[in-house]
Amino acid sequence: MPKKSIRIALQEAVVLEMRRDPNVIVIGEDVAGGAGCSGDRGTYGGAMGVTKGLIEEFGDERVIDTPITESALVGMAAGAAATGLRPIAELMFVDFMGVCFDQVLNQAAKFRYMFGGKATTPLVVRTMMGAGFRAAAQHSQMLYNLFTAVPGVKCVIPSNAYDAKGLLIQAIRDDDVVIFFNHKAIYDFEDEVPDEAYTIPFGEANIVREGEDVTIVAFSRMVHTANDAAKSLEKDGISVELIDPRTSSPLDEESIIESVENTGRLVIVDEGTPRCGLAGDVAGMVAEKAFHALKAPIIQVTAPHTPVPFSPVLEDAYIPSAAKVEEAVRKVMTMSRDAVSAS
C-alpha cells in the first residue's frame, strides 16, 4: 500500500468527496490563492498546501477564496451547511477561532438542538493547532478542549495519515458540526493510506500498542511522543498500552475504561494546558467510572498553564516531551493506593 503524508491524505479525502458530492465545497483564506494577483491561481492551497491545485479541477465556485474575515467565512459556511451544502471551512490556525467563535459556539453548534431537531448542519471546520513552529502565543494553541466542551460539536483529532483520511471523509459525510484539528508539526508524517475512499467512525479509539502495566491515553501529536516513551520503557520491561482516542467528542470511554481495568494505571498526555483540558476530562471520566480498577493515582502530562512562548528554549520546555512521559510512567509504576493514603 502506498505511503502518504497526512497532508496528502487530507487532500485525497477532500478531492474524493468533492468528486462524489457536488454539494461539498471548500471555503477559506487562500484555499486556492492568487485571486486578484499577477501570478498563478491555486498555488497557495491553504496554510499547509492541502487544497493546492484543487481549483483546477473544481473551479472557483467550489474552491472559494475569501477575504481574511473569519467570522464571515465560518458563519457563511454554517449558513450554507444549514441550507443544503456540505462546506469544508478552512481556518488557517485554530487561534483564529477567537475571531469567529460566535459563529461556531452560538450559531452552528446550536442549530440542530435549538431548532428542535429540524436543522442539520453538515459543516466541517478544518484547522491547524499546536506548538513547535516557534510561532508563539497567537499561532500555537491547542484549544481542542474548548470545542470538546461545546454540545453540538464533534471534535476530530487525527494523529496519522490513515486516520486523517478516513476521519475527514467521515467528517464531510457527517450531518453535524465537526471541527477537524490537525497538528501543524505532523503534516509530513507518513503512513500506508489506501487510494480509495474509506471512513473511520467517530468515537472509536485506536489501540496504538497493546500492553499490560500502564495505559497511556494521548492525543494528536502526543500519540507519537507517548509511543517514543513506550518504546523506551519497553526496554526496561515496562509494558505500555497506548490509546489514541482519535475523537475527543464523541469520546470512546469504553476502550479507555477497558484498558485501565487491565492495567490499573493511567497516564494521560495532552499538549493542551492543564486546567479544564482533555487530560482532566479523561481523568475525571476514569476516576468516576473505573475507580475500582485503579491501582495508583492518574497522572496528567500536559503543557504548563501559560501561553505558548516564542523562544526555542522555552517552547521546547513547554511541549510535553517523551522524557516527561517516561518519567510519569515510571512514577505511576512506583505508586499505589496505600502509598497515596499514607502520604
Binding site: 483564506e29 487562500d30 490563492g33 492568487g34 485571486a35 486578484g36 494577483c37 499577477s38 498555488t43 497557495y44 477564496d65 475569501t66 477575504p67 481574511i68
Partner: peptide
Amino acid sequence: GFGEGTGADYHV
C-alpha cells in the same frame, strides 16, 4: 495590495 496570497483587487 495583498491579504497574504490574495490580491486587494479581489478581497476589498
